[in-house]
């Protein structure tokens, strides 16, 4: 009659399945995922859709959209195909989004983890550095860095990563401060586990969910930052990027708005997809926060 507490509950389905079930409960997140897949496909198929250089002359300048099937979305004032520009731009945007985010999260996790775990003077020093970065507005710092390093695509990506690590650092620090007092950390210490192991193997996996969610937001922000730079004419002119296209389309905005509108829509949808995916991840990773 009495239930022995050694009887096991039935096994749960694997984590990935549970994760997917929770994720798909959010309709908007599914839309975001679909948009993201589309952008990803565009980036992958750019070479197939238009095997040539996207910056070459493909038709008469300022051909309106839907008039010539060789250039379905029209051409800009130099006769470059907007359609293939958007496909190649997806590559640049995704590349910048992913790499800059990795740089920012990497620096942020390292600094935040050290500051949060050790506390004391380590925390004081690292946080003062973080604050120094935070006092300078993001974009101004980015302009400065690009002005110094030059506007090659690698440097731009790195610079975007460097200006956006402060927020993840603060977040990781807060997570670590609350997690380091937990009993499972004491338990690991009691087993004789070293500090480095505790930070990266015990605490970090538990601190990851909010970081993953923030990473998706960060990707959207990085894409916007690159577009803004390109809009000001500081982007890498050797690549077709959405920001570059808008920047150049600006001068013909009144006569040929489509030059700026199509890449603009691409940016909006991409950023939107990251935000929606981020929200879905949040629901799936922190199921208790919202019921």
């Amino acid at each position: 009659m009495t239930t022995l507490d050694t009887d096991l509950a039935p096994a749960e389905p694997p984590r990935l399945i549970v994760f997917w079930r929770r994720y798909k409960r959010n309709r908007a997140a599914l839309l975001g995922l679909a948009l993201f897949v589309i952008v990803l496909l565009m980036a992958l198929t750019a070479g197939i859709v238009d095997p040539g250089d996207p910056l070459r002359r493909a038709g008469a300048p300022l051909t309106p959209p839907l008039t010539d099937w060789a250039t379905p979305l029209g051409t800009d004032q130099l006769g470059r195909d907007i359609f293939s520009g958007i496909f190649y731009g997806a590559r640049i945007s995704l590349m910048i989004g992913v790499v800059a985010t990795l740089v920012a999260i990497g620096i942020g996790v390292l600094i935040g983890a050290l500051a949060g775990y050790f506390g004391g003077w380590v925390d004081d020093v690292l946080m003062r550095v973080t604050e120094a970065f935070q006092t300078i507005p993001n974009f101004v710092l980015l302009l400065t860095l690009v002005a110094i390093m030059g506007s090659k695509i690698e440097w731009i990506t790195l610079a975007i990563g460097i200006v956006s690590w402060t927020a993840p650092a603060r977040m990781v620090r807060a997570e670590f401060m609350s997690l380091r007092g937990r009993e499972f950390v004491d338990a690991a210490r009691n087993l004789g586990v070293s500090n480095a192991s505790i930070i990266f193997r015990e605490i970090l996996p538990n601190a990851l969910p909010p970081i993953v969610v923030y990473a998706s937001v960060l990707m959207a922000l990085s894409i916007l930052l690159e577009s803004a730079l390109a809009f000001l004419g500081l982007g890498d002119p050797n690549y077709a990027s959405w920001g570059n296209m808008i920047g150049q389309g600006r001068s013909v905005l009144r006569t040929a708005a489509y030059c700026a509108v199509f890449p603009g829509i691409a940016i909006v949808l991409t950023v939107l997809s990251f935000s929606l995916v981020g929200e879905g991840l949040n629901d799936a990773l922190n199921p208790r926060q919202k019921k």
Binding site: E183, F184, D186, A187, A188, N190, E202, P205, N206
Partner: peptide, 14 residues
Amino acid sequence: QMVFQDPMASLNPR
């Protein structure tokens, strides 16, 4: 070695 009070909190959930 130590056995902790709260078995949920003292086992790394991941």
